[in-house]
């Protein structure tokens, strides 16, 4: 479903991602963890073109993106990639001037060119799925962080993506609101959605993910099953990180 080949990303002289290669098959749930500044979010943002790659190639759902191609060609590919990919952000990024249901309907109308009625039906179903059907006509500012993030998930699902990307979806939430968002994500995972999740929620990574990518200094240091990773990490870097996390 996703294939990354020798991907590097630099800002000026600063190399944030260094020669990353990996393959993610369909229906796999991948948790990307690691210390801040390790390039996790940048990696995720490269997958749907919010960051342009400096070198290497990415294939997402048969769309081939290569850093050697012209910028225009890459933009075209990225636009197609985004149609198949949903993304959920740390800060939710809901449209504040639109109601909850309008947030979800927007892309169905604008990108998929479906009628308002169709969009409304689809959006209603999605909001029901994330447990917010009674909030349809409310503005996002009236919702809690957890509710906002669930709307954001519904909005991403509106495009019927084959892949969902999550960029620290619970990091901006109050602790008691984390659970409701993780629950929705777990349901998605159980339904077989291909997911790449950048997260600091170790327990969730352990429970819901099929695979852990541990990143440090712009590289994938460890790539393992959750059980193996959390009980017996093979690199010193991962051991240190887990020891720090477990202090709390």
């Amino acid at each position: 479903m996703i294939q990354v080949m020798d991907l590097s990303k630099s800002y000026d002289q600063n190399e944030v991602l260094k020669h990353i290669s990996l393959t993610i098959p369909a229906h796999q749930v991948v948790a990307v963890i690691g210390p801040s500044g390790s390039g996790k979010s940048t990696f995720l943002r490269c997958l749907n073109g919010l960051e342009m790659i400096t070198s290497g190639a990415i294939t997402v759902n048969n769309h081939h993106l290569n850093a050697t191609e012209s910028k225009k060609k890459q933009q075209k590919t990225i636009h197609r990639v985004r149609q198949d990919t949903g993304m959920v952000f740390q800060q939710f990024n809901l449209y504040p001037h639109k109601t909850v249901i309008e947030n979800v309907m927007e892309a169905i109308i604008v990108v998929k060119k479906q009628s308002k009625e169709q969009a409304k039906t689809i959006a209603s179903q999605l909001l029901k799925r994330v447990g917010l059907q009674e909030k349809e006509d409310v503005y996002p500012s009236k919702l809690s962080g957890g509710q906002q993030q669930r709307v954001a998930i519904a909005r991403a699902l509106a495009m019927e993506p084959k892949i969902m990307l999550f960029d620290e979806p619970t990091s901006a939430l109050d602790p008691e609101l984390v659970g409701e968002v993780l629950k929705v994500m777990k349901e998605l995972a159980d339904e077989g959605m291909t997911m790449v999740i950048v997260t600091h929620e170790m327990r969730f990574a352990q429970d819901a993910a099929d695979r852990i990518l541990f990143m440090a200094d712009g590289q994938i240091v460890e790539d393992a099953e959750p059980k193996k990773f959390f009980s017996d990490p093979s690199t010193e870097r991962a051991q240190k990180f887990l020891a720090k996390v477990n202090e709390f």
Binding site: R82, M87, F89, N93, A152, A158
Partner: peptide, 27 residues
């Protein structure tokens, strides 16, 4: 208008022009 608004719109598959017209300008 925060950059995250444009990013969210782009991530749902909108073109940059659509994101500006539908999401950024109204705000």
């Amino acid at each position: 208008v925060p950059a995250g608004q444009t990013e969210a719109a782009l991530a749902t598959g909108m073109t940059e022009a659509q994101a500006i017209r539908r999401i950024v300008i109204p705000q």
